[in-house]
């Protein structure tokens, strides 16, 4: 996968929930993002996302464990959906920045 921050160097949640007000980085997660909520819903049904741990952050973005990405992409491709994959073994370089929301 090729990325990892040494979490032991940073305070964990128990130590930091009150004092620490800095950013919290969650590692080992991948993002699926779509410009259309309905398309995302339809896509996720096709990818059998109900079987995979996931968390929605809006109606257009869902985060899943990185370990599940290849399976999700394979299922999508099997259904004829070819997402743009950024980074990782299947990935390509991102050609343009996503707009901030």
């Amino acid at each position: 996968m090729g990325y990892s921050l040494d979490s032991s160097r940073f305070p964990n949640q128990q130590e930091s929930s009150v004092q620490n007000r800095g950013p919290v980085l969650h590692q080992g997660v991948s993002l699926i993002v779509c410009d259309n909520a309905a398309v995302l819903q339809e896509t996720l049904v096709q990818a059998n996302l109900s079987e995979v741990e996931h968390q929605f952050f809006s109606d257009r973005a869902v985060v899943i464990p990185t370990g599940a990405v290849l399976q999700i992409v394979a299922e999508l491709k099997a259904k004829g959906v070819y997402p743009q994959v950024v980074g990782g073994p299947l990935g390509v370089e991102l050609v343009e920045d996503e707009d901030d929301t």
């Binding site: 950013p23 919290v24 993002l31 993002v33 410009d35 959906v81 997402p83 743009q84 950024v86 980074g87």
Partner: peptide, 22 residues
């Protein structure tokens, strides 16, 4: 159409209590 769905394979989810600080 292809770019409507993007999978970011490797990265970090960042969360912060304070939107301005984020």
């Amino acid at each position: 159409i292809h770019k409507r769905l993007v999978v970011h394979h490797s990265g970090y989810l960042v969360r912060h209590h304070d939107p301005d600080a984020l």
